[in-house]
Design a binder for these strands. Structure first.
Lengths: 214, 214
DNA sequence: GGCTAGGATATTGTTGAACAATCCTCAATG
DNA sequence: CATTGAGGATTGTTCAACAATATCCTAGCC
């Protein structure tokens, strides 16, 4: 037992949330979930704190914990922060270790392979890996951790996307373009491409959210 | 009672940590602290989770929680992340709302007043406010939150600084310089000044840490 | 003397039950 | 229709107990 019971309960909940079994807005009843997962209320509460730390869940005093709901403002802010972290990575690309630079290209390769196979779910996660690799170029553990939290949050919003293909397909080519600019050492162009990419992706998500609201 | 018992316990512990009553490395005994604060072990554990979220405290399975100890690598990484967040703020300064830009200047004013009065502790916290205001120029709630966590972590390292004056005095003038460059709209110069400022501050802290290790 | 094994001790991890405090529902009232 | 209040459900907190794990000390060995 390398992990505590609370950590295992948190993992079980995290899986259910990201699989969509517990959709955003759901209230997580301590009694029902505790019975379901076979842990006591106190332990479940510790698990809740862990998930709250990851912003997957929101704790409201005396009202319980709820699966996080991202509104349009949240999504806009997530993209602002993405621009900060990924932008830092892109600017640091020239001086970054070869291993980190290679990870960027590898993620693009995987996305292209998955796209060719029509596996859009895998395209999505390769896309996340690509952008995580961009931020990692900054060479900071804290930037990496912040990026991970950010992407976990973003995954919540992806649940409202109707067609994974329509959302991910346009970005495979853009990722390739961006990786090419980085390899070529054209930092300014890479930064501009990244900024435009993020604007584009943000617009698609916001459109989908407006759509889903009706 | 707007705050939960756990939150109040966390506040009490946070105060003791930042006041140096509980120095980095201290083990926080559940029983002793629970008796001391008048809360149960379960509630204290919830408070621990909150502080762990702020990186003030570290939870090791089956060994308890300890006041966080920053080593040299941690401090270097904190400054890498500061460069990312504050750099983003500086680059966004031109387009930032007037209220946010005014906050930058106000923090410098306060630091100068405190320096004139010889209150070096207040100079230190005005300095933190200044840099928080820089990051805030990015206009992102998530950047603000990340910056707050970062500065809370950094405060832990400040405890090893022998002379607050020697550490804070040189930076009052540099902050003024930086604010001037921002007001003048010279973004590139401001960015360069920020980078050099951070290098300078990092070096002072690392020197002090090496000193303290003997 | 120094090292290892093993057990006593202390601390954390987890549980279940109990009660207090708070929120939500919904019917009765004006 | 808005308000109020009782009742029920859920969270907040405590307590006591036991299990699991780490730490420390001692005895025995080389």
């Amino acid at each position: 037992m390398a992990l505590s019971t609370a950590q295992r309960a948190a993992t079980a909940l995290r899986d259910r949330i990201q699989a969509g079994v517990l959709p955003p807005g759901s209230r997580l009843s301590e009694e029902a979930l505790g019975r379901d997962l076979g842990v006591s209320r106190n332990t479940l509460r510790e698990a809740f704190r862990l998930l709250a730390h990851e912003s997957l869940v929101e704790h409201r005093l005396n009202r319980g914990v709820f699966v996080r709901v991202l509104d349009a403002d949240d999504v806009r802010d997530v993209y602002r922060m993405r621009a900060v972290l990924e932008g830092a990575g892109v600017r640091a690309a020239a001086g970054a270790p070869p291993a980190l630079r290679a990870a960027v290209g590898a993620a693009v390769d995987e996305a292209e392979r998955a796209a060719a196979a029509g596996d859009w779910r895998e395209v999505g996660s390769a896309d996340l890996r690509f952008h995580r690799a961009l931020a990692a170029l900054a060479g900071s553990a804290r930037v990496d951790a912040a990026m991970d939290r950010l992407l976990a949050e973003l995954r919540l919003a992806f649940h409202t996307m109707p067609s994974p293909r329509r959302f991910h397909e346009p970005f495979v080519a853009r990722n390739r373009t961006l990786a090419g600019l980085l390899d070529g050492g054209d930092a300014a162009a890479a930064e501009a491409e990244l900024a435009d990419y993020l604007r584009h992706a943000l617009r698609l998500i916001l459109d989908a959210m407006r759509e889903a609201d009706r």
